[in-house]
């Protein structure tokens, strides 16, 4: 078995334990120990889950971008497995961030959905990721699949800042800037649980990435082994 996979197997537990620890402490601080916000009241506690999810989805996309560039450079199949894993996780984190954002939007803005710059760019991000994952299912040759997927991921990553800026300009044109989250300063009581949850979420992502990379690698390995067995089977049949 691959040396890297063996190393992942040995060290992944630390990330998992770290993530579980940070998240439990963060949840305790966020749900129980921290005071309610002056303006938003208790609803502000949704921030401790929503903002880390959103951060982590961007982190996951950055990992996907880095992995894609690395893959096109070195053509290592394990890196491609990592990209595939990161894309799936980024899609999960992005959709969860959108859902929690909608739940936060209802009591604070009194609407489930608004074409806010961030919401819109996260939706575009989700669509790009779904396109990426769909593309991978439509290609049979694994080498070509990896190559094309890397190209799509890189183009999408370059596109994201442009999407964000264009949507922001567009929104300031069409809607009054009534409910922007920008400018709301976060006091240190609220900041500490947020940082704790962000670190925990990033560690959780790293752990999930390691597990998912292993899963995809092992699935491919098993596939290859079965193929080889089947090949031998056919061979021996043909010979006898």
């Amino acid at each position: 078995m691959n040396k890297v996979i063996r190393r992942i197997q040995r060290y992944q537990g630390w990330f998992g334990a770290g993530a579980a620890g940070c998240l439990l402490v963060g949840l305790y601080l966020g749900l129980i120990a921290s005071p309610p916000d002056y303006y938003q009241g208790e609803v502000v506690r949704i921030m401790y889950i929503h903002v880390p999810l959103a951060h982590t989805s961007l982190l996951a996309y950055t990992v996907l971008f880095g992995g894609s560039v690395w893959y096109l450079w070195k053509r290592d199949p394990l890196v491609d497995n990592m990209c595939h894993a990161a894309a799936g996780l980024s899609a999960v984190f992005t959709s969860l961030a959108l859902f929690t954002g909608m739940i936060w939007g209802k009591p604070t803005w009194n609407t489930w959905w608004t074409w806010d710059a961030r919401l819109t760019s996260f939706t575009v991000l989700l669509l790009i990721l779904i396109g990426y994952l769909m593309l991978r299912t439509f290609i049979d040759d694994p080498e070509r699949e990896a190559r094309f997927a890397a190209v799509v991921a890189i183009i999408g990553f370059v596109d994201l800042p442009i999407v964000h800026f264009s949507v922001e300009w567009w929104r300031t044109l069409h809607q009054p800037q009534s409910f922007s989250l920008r400018g709301v300063s976060i006091s240190s009581d609220l900041l500490f649980p947020l940082i704790m949850m962000s670190i925990g979420m990033s560690l959780l992502f790293t752990y999930m990435l390691l597990v998912r990379t292993q899963m995809l690698y092992l699935t491919n390995l098993l596939h290859a082994k079965k193929g080889r067995l089947l090949g031998q089977f056919h061979l021996s049949k043909a010979d006898s």
Partner: peptide, 14 residues
């Protein structure tokens, strides 16, 4: 279209 349309959102808006 699935791959292209989300990417050209800025072009569409502009």
């Amino acid at each position: 279209p699935i791959l292209l349309l989300p990417l050209v959102v800025p072009v569409m808006i502009a």
